[in-house]
C-alpha cells in the first residue's frame, strides 16, 4: 500500500484516496509536431524497475495534482513535490542518489 504526503494539503493520503496520473514530466507534443515526437508523447513510457516519477491527484481529498518519486520495485516513497514544475527538485534528486547510488539519474 502506498502512503503519499500530499504537498498541497499536507495529509498522509492512502493510495485509495488518490487517483494515478501516470508518468511525470512527459513533454507534450501537439499540433505541428513530427509524427515521431507525437508517437513518443502518446505511447513511449520509461516503465523502469526502480526509481520512478509519477503524477497523482488527491481525488478524495483536496483535489489537487502533485508529483511523487517512488521506487516501483520496493514501493519506497522518496518524496512528493509540487505539480507546477517541469523537473524534479534538485534536493530530491540528491536524496535519491544517496539512497540509490546505482540509479542512472532523471
Amino acid at each position: 500500500m502506498l502512503l503519499l504526503t500530499c504537498p498541497c494539503c499536507g495529509v498522509d493520503a492512502d493510495e485509495t484516496e488518490l487517483a494515478p496520473g501516470g508518468e511525470a514530466h512527459v513533454t507534450r507534443f501537439g499540433a505541428g509536431a513530427s509524427d515521431d515526437d507525437f508517437e513518443g508523447y502518446l505511447f513511449h513510457r520509461k516503465n523502469p524497475k526502480g526509481v520512478h516519477f509519477e503524477r497523482w491527484r488527491h481525488a478524495m481529498g483536496c483535489g489537487k495534482w502533485f508529483h511523487a518519486a517512488r521506487a516501483t520495485d520496493t514501493l519506497e516513497v522518496f518524496g512528493t513535490y509540487s505539480a507546477q514544475v517541469l523537473a524534479p527538485p534538485k534536493d530530491l534528486i540528491e536524496k535519491i542518489k544517496l539512497k540509490r547510488p546505482d540509479w542512472e539519474g532523471f
Binding site: C9, V11, T16, E17, M60, G61, C62
Partner: peptide, 10 residues
C-alpha cells in the same frame, strides 16, 4: 477538517 472517503464516496 479532514477530506477523505467513507466507503467509496467523498
Amino acid at each position: 477538517i479532514r477530506r477523505t472517503r467513507l466507503g467509496q464516496v467523498a
